[in-house]
Design a protein around this nucleic acid. Structure first.
Length: 547
DNA sequence: TGCCCTGGCGCC
DNA sequence: AAAGGGCGCCAGGGCA
C-alpha cells in the first residue's frame, strides 16, 4: 500500500492514496502510527519530514523519497547534481524553468535553530504535485528496462534516508568524560582556557629549538618549508610522508605535533562541547550527496573519527556495541561484478589478499594487496604498476572490467554501478581541455592528464558505487531484522562498517542478524555468484576494543 | 566582515 | 615502498 504525503507545518499534512481523494490531517504522526506497518510513504524529502515524525514516536518502514529518486533519475540521464526538490521535479514535468534547490535545513547545533518555522502551509495542490511526480518517476524507472535493478536502487536509497534520520535521532553513545580524559592524556590540559593544550606548546618549542631557536608556527606549511630551506633542505610540501624521509631533529616533534594538532582542532574540546550532548553524538548523515552513493555527513566529522578517539564510544551500562566490518569489500565487489571466475575463487576465501598472494604472488600478502588496490584506484606507476601484468594474466575478466570503465571515462562516457547509479558527466572545461570533443582545437598535456584522471575516477566509481549499494542492502536488511526481533538500535554506519547498540544478552542474536544481512545482500545483488562477503563482527563495551 | 581557495590529514 | 579513488573539516591567506 502506498500513501502519498504533502507535509505542512506543525505536524499537519495532506494524505492520499495513489488514486484516492486527498484528505487533510492535523497530526501526521498519529496517522503514521495508526497505518499498516508495511505502508510505503511517498513524500518529497525524508530528511525534511522524518525527524519530526521520529520525535513524535512515529516510525516508518518504507518510503519513496521523491527528491532522492529524482536525483538518481537525473544522474542516470547524465545530469548529476541538478535540482531535485519537489518544485524542481514539477517544473521539469511542466517544461518550466527549474528552480535551484533550497539550502538544506541543517540541525547543526552551532547555527541558530530555525527549524519547522519555514514549512509552507500544506496545500491540496502540493498533493497533486506529489502524485504527479511520483507517477512520472515510476514511469521513468520502468522505462530504464533493467529488470528492476534501478527500482531496487530507488528503494534502497529511500531506505537509506530513513535509516540516516533514525541514526541521527538515536545518536552514537559517547562518553564525554572518557573523551576528556583521553585528550588530557594525549596532550595535557591547557594552561588557561582557550589556550592550546600544553603538549602542543611544548612540541612547538622543541621544533623551534631544532631550527636553532627561530620561532615557528608548525601549523603553517610555508613557515616550515622556509625553516627547512634555511637548514639546507628543500621540501616540495610538509606532508607527513615527505617529512618522514628527512633526517633532521625537527622532524620527530613536527610529526608528533601534526598528529596531536589534528586531534585538537578536529576532535578536541571544542568538538566535544558542540557535538556531544546527553551522552550521544548526533551526526547528521547526508544521503544522496556523494556521487558514488556513499553517505556524507554535515558537521561533526562523523565519518572521520580518529582511531584513538573511538575509545570514547562506549555502550550504556549492561549494553554492548556489536561492531561489524565487511572486510575487503571492494575487491570482492569487483570479483562479483566482473564475474571473473578465478578472482571469484579467491574471493571465496575469508582473507582475500592471502588467497590472492597464494595464487599469484608467492604468498606475499602485502604485494597482493598493493597490486589489487592499484587496480581499483588506477595506479600504473611504481610497485603497484609492476604487479599489474601478473594480475591481468591471472584475472583477465576482472582487469578488463575496470579498464573498460576507465576507457569509457577517458572518452567522456558515463559508467554505472551494478544497480544503475550513474557517474556525473564531464564538465564543459573537461571537454575543451581534453579535446575528446571533436570540435576542440588541440589536446594539451594537461588535457591528456585530465582524461586519464577521469578514467581513474570512472574505474573506481563502478566498484565504489557497487560496494556502496551492497552496504545499503546490508543496512536495510539489518534494520528490518533488528526491528522485527526487537533487538537494539543501529547507531553508526561508515561505508563498510556497522555498529549496533544492544543489551548484552542480545549480542549473539544481533551478530547472527549481521551475518544474515550480509548473506542476503550478496544473494540479492549477485545471485548465483560464488563470491563471499564475510563480516568480521566483534562485541565489546567500547568501539576502540572492537578491532 | 564574509567568501573562496589551498594545504594538510582524518576516515573508507 | 608509493603517493592513486571518494569524502569533510580545520586553519590560514587572499580578496572584495
Amino acid at each position: 500500500m502506498r500513501i502519498a504525503v504533502a507535509p505542512g507545518p506543525d505536524g499537519t499534512a495532506w494524505l492520499s492514496t495513489v488514486d484516492g481523494q486527498p484528505r487533510f490531517v492535523a497530526d501526521l504522526a498519529a496517522e503514521v502510527r495508526a497505518a499498516h506497518p508495511d505502508t510505503r510513504w511517498i513524500w518529497p524529502d525524508t530528511a525534511a519530514c522524518y525527524p519530526a515524525l521520529l520525535a513524535a514516536g512515529a516510525r516508518v518502514a518504507r518510503c519513496h523519497d521523491l527528491a532522492l529518486i529524482e536525483g538518481l533519475l537525473s544522474g542516470h540521464d547524465g545530469h548529476w547534481g541538478e535540482p531535485r526538490s519537489l518544485a524542481a521535479a514539477v517544473a521539469r514535468l511542466d517544461g518550466r524553468p527549474v528552480p535551484a534547490d533550497p539550502e538544506p535545513v541543517t540541525h547543526d547545533p552551532r547555527l541558530q535553530p530555525a527549524l519547522f518555522d519555514h514549512a509552507p502551509p500544506a496545500e491540496r495542490s502540493t498533493m497533486d504535485d506529489v502524485l504527479r511526480v511520483h507517477a512520472a518517476q515510476q514511469k521513468r524507472i520502468a522505462e530504464i528496462g533493467d529488470r528492476g535493478a534501478f527500482a531496487t536502487l530507488c528503494a534502497l536509497e529511500s531506505a537509506g534516508a530513513l535509516i540516516a534520520a533514525e541514526m541521527s535521532h538515536t545518536g552514537l553513545p559517547w562518553r564525554a568524560d572518557v573523551h576528556r580524559a583521553l585528550l588530557a592524556e594525549l596532550m595535557g590540559t591547557p594552561l588557561a582556557p582557550g589556550m592550546p593544550p600544553r603538549r602542543l606548546t611544548e612540541l612547538a618549542a622543541e621544533i623551534s629549538a631544532a631550527f636553532g631557536g627561530r620561532p615557528i608556527h608548525p601549523d603553517l606549511p610555508a613557515e616550515v618549508i622556509k625553516a627547512f630551506a634555511a637548514a639546507g633542505i628543500r621540501l616540495p610540501s610538509t606532508r607527513s610522508w615527505v617529512l618522514k624521509e628527512i633526517d633532521h631533529p625537527a622532524v620527530k616533534p613536527l610529526l608528533a605535533y601534526k598528529e596531536l594538532y589534528r586531534i585538537h582542532t578536529a576532535h578536541g574540546q571544542a568538538w566535544l562541547d558542540t557535538w556531544v550532548h546527553n551522552g550521544r553524538f548526533r551526526a547528521e548523515y547526508v544521503v544522496g550527496g556523494v556521487v558514488s552513493g556513499r553517505w556524507a555527513t554535515r558537521g561533526g566529522a562523523a565519518l572521520q573519527i580518529p582511531r584513538v578517539i573511538r575509545r570514547a564510544v562506549v555502550a550504556d551500562p549492561d549494553w554492548v556495541l556489536v561492531v561489524a566490518d565487511a572486510g575487503q569489500l571492494e575487491p570482492r565487489i569487483l570479483a562479483a561484478l566482473s564475474g571473473d571466475r578465478r578472482l571469484g575463487e579467491v574471493a571465496a576465501a575469508g582473507d582475500l589478499y592471502a588467497a590472492l598472494a597464494a595464487e599469484a604472488f608467492d604468498g606475499d600478502r602485502d604485494r597482493a594487496k598493493l597490486g589489487l588496490l592499484g587496480v581499483l584506484y588506477g595506479q600504473t606507476s611504481g610497485q603497484a604498476g609492476q604487479l599489474l601484468p601478473v594480475l591481468r594474466q591471472r584475472f583477465p575478466a576482472a582487469i578488463d572490467y575496470v579498464e573498460r570503465a576507465a576507457v569509457a571515462g577517458e572518452q567522456g562516457l558515463l559508467v554505472r554501478s551494478g544497480l544503475g547509479r550513474t557517474c556525473p558527466s564531464p564538465s564543459a572545461s573537461w571537454w575543451s581541455q581534453t579535446g575528446v570533443d571533436p570540435g576542440a582545437v588541440s589536446v594539451t598535456r594537461d588535457g591528456a592528464g585530465a582524461a586519464r584522471s577521469r578514467g581513474r575516477f570512472t574505474r573506481n566509481f563502478v566498484v565504489q558505487a557497487s560496494a556502496a549499494e551492497w552496504a545499503l542492502v546490508v543496512l536495510a536488511e539489518l534494520r528490518r531484522a533488528l526491528h522485527e526481533g526487537g533487538l537494539g538500535e543501529l547507531v553508526f554506519f561508515q561505508h563498510d562498517e556497522f555498529i549496533v547498540h544492544c543489551p548484552a544478552a542480545q549480542a549473539d542474536a544481533v551478530t547472527a542478524a549481521v551475518h544474515a544481512a550480509a548473506e542476503r545482500a550478496g544473494d540479492l545483488l549477485y545471485p548465483g555468484v560464488p563470491v563471499r562477503f564475510p563480516m568480521s563482527v566483534a562485541t565489546s563495551a567500547s568501539y576502540a576494543d572492537a578491532k
